[in-house]
Simulated assay, not measured.
Amino acid sequence: MGFLDKFRKKPRVTPGGSPIYRYETPEEPGWRPPESVGAYAEEITEHFEALFPGRESFVFHELISDLVHIDINIMRPTEKQDFYVLYTTGMSDLPMTLPDELSDREDLKYAELYLFLPGSWDLGKEFSLSSDMPESSYWPVRMLKFLARFPHEYETWLGWGHTVPNGPEYTPLCDGVGFGGVVLSWTGEDNRLGGLNAEDGRKINFYSVIPAYKEEIEYKLKYGMEGLDKVFCEKQLPMILDIHRPNLCPDFKEVLDQ
């Protein structure tokens, strides 16, 4: 699934059991105002504040929204936990479109995304994101916004183990960054980071967004998420984004997503 492609076609399944969907750009549908805005934002925010207490935070509000209203919530580093927490709200306002074989899985239809940035990351000094922020600082925010809207815009879904290459050539997510796509996973042993049950009974899953190298994504297509997860664990993938981290599957040369 590429960042700039749309419309699902019948998937091809890789040796690792991963269906590969292709997307084409549709005709411009026109502006579609969101049906609701932040239906679960308060509950999600309270959940993250309980997980990461004592942090200053602010919200990067979306000014003009199409289909869904996606906000990026930013929790600042603390002295003991020197990293930012970024998470989305609004993605779970609408159900995702599951494949026919999973259409009855209500527990998979709603999700939000999160990632951790190092405390040295420049997200501005005030309680807002600067409009002139360089792309080298802004790209994780842009990536989260795109991914959160992706399943609703493309009538598909995102879940654990899904990979999203940045186009067929695995274009770098930002100049100077080697990652050519993302992997969705869960982080750590605290299952509270896996999601929450809202007061109305809705299950909202939280997925960690892991920027990944082309070889790591292709490895997952060959051996499944369990195989890639084993590599991530054995080679100690950092929980906090490190744009200089080594490729954990550098010798994997097969190309399955083509």
Rank of each mutant, 00 (worst) to 15 (best):
P19A: 07
K253A: 13
T187F: 09
D257Q: 11
S137L: 07
F150Y: 12
D100Q: 15
T14Q: 02
E153V: 15
L67A: 06
H47D: 10
C174F: 07
T156N: 08
L228H: 07
T97N: 08
I74K: 02
P246G: 11
K222A: 15
L67Q: 02
E28L: 00
L117Q: 09
E216D: 11
R76Y: 06
L117M: 11
N73W: 00
D71A: 03
G178P: 00
E62P: 00
T89L: 02
Y21S: 00
N191I: 02
G124M: 05
G224N: 06
L51C: 11
R142G: 15
Q258R: 14
E155C: 12
E112H: 01
P172R: 04
M1Y: 08
S103L: 09
M133K: 10
S208K: 14
E49G: 08
G16T: 09
E169W: 07
L129A: 01
Q81F: 05
A111S: 10
Q81E: 13
D132C: 05
M91V: 07
D66V: 04
G38Q: 06
Y87M: 04
L196Y: 01
R202M: 05
G38D: 13
R22K: 14
Y138R: 14
D82Q: 15
E56T: 06
V177T: 15
L184V: 03
G176V: 02
T89A: 01
L158H: 07
V182G: 11
V85R: 00
K203C: 09
L193A: 00
V209Y: 04
G227T: 13
N166H: 14
P19T: 02
D93F: 09
K203F: 07
